[in-house]
Design a protein around this nucleic acid. Structure first.
Lengths: 147, 147
DNA sequence: GGGAATTAGGATAGGAGTGTCCGAATTGAG
DNA sequence: CTCAATTCGGACACTCCTATCCTAATTCCC
């Protein structure tokens, strides 16, 4: 569902959001707490810093802190920080943007579902995850028994 | 959203579903029609055959055909045909299945969203995509402006 | 029966995601 | 000032997904 990198990033953000406001947490501690490989998490945090979600402070007693309140960081933002210019949304039938041999009802139906799927996880904020709140009625979704 | 392999497979199934009932279509033609690399699509079709979704017939005038009606093939089935024993659903906070330092409201909230996302695309059938029908009310979802 | 078309399946290469390692730059503590 | 802690940034290995290529095995047509 999420890439490994995004998952590490999300865990790091959740951890940072639980720290006292303004406190600097070194990457090493975050790695230990979240179970991410320390070296790799370094890179990941740099990515988050580049995206403006966290701020890194060098030097002794340095570390990372949230740059943006936890209510303003959506999962979609975290994902976006690590994807490289997403592909041009190719059509499901055939190669061309919308093949002529089919009126591409598939296209619409598919994009609709994709958007709905992306939003149902992308719209969640760090704060939502920590508070357990449901930002909009999601439990109102129909449920079908998986055969 | 989908792996490349699953996308190829989905396109192949959509193409096969549009062919006359019982007709055998060689992999080569499917590849040309869907824009997938022919050699790789061969493997992909083998995967679909192993999953019981299509049937391959060897020899001259051979080819592939749907083994199951298009109404009975869900996107989730296609995806499942190509994933190797999905991982044990690790918790979002910390490494352990459910860390003690947080009551894991995050866990529930997250899984809820994930399931909802998976279902919104996974429950779609090949037939749905071709007919443009919406299997359950999906357009009733709330929509938020992406900032 | 011979030959061509086609699936089945293995071996191999390229690339991206993931992870490791090491040095350079920065900053505060002593 | 010196040193240690820390982020920053590059270089490199590993693995899996994707893709290519080649050789069987099978089946129909002539």
């Amino acid at each position: 569902m999420l890439t490994q990198t995004a998952a590490h990033a999300l865990r790091a953000l959740l951890y940072l959001a639980q720290q006292p406001e303004g406190m600097l947490t070194p990457a090493n501690r975050i790695a230990r707490a979240t179970g991410a490989p320390a070296n790799y998490l370094g890179k990941t945090l740099q990515g988050l810093a580049a995206a403006g979600l966290v701020r890194g402070t060098r030097g002794r007693e340095g570390g990372y802190t949230l740059e943006v309140p936890a209510t303003a960081i959506r999962v979609a933002d975290v994902v976006a920080a690590f994807e490289g210019a997403d592909r041009p949304e190719r059509c499901l039938l055939g190669d061309r943007p919308c093949a002529s041999d089919t009126p591409c009802t598939a296209h619409r139906r598919w994009q609709q579902a994709q958007r709905s799927a992306k939003e149902s996880v992308g719209a969640i904020t760090i704060e939502d995850l920590l508070s357990g709140a449901s930002p909009e009625r999601l439990e109102a979704m129909p449920r079908r028994a998986a055969s």
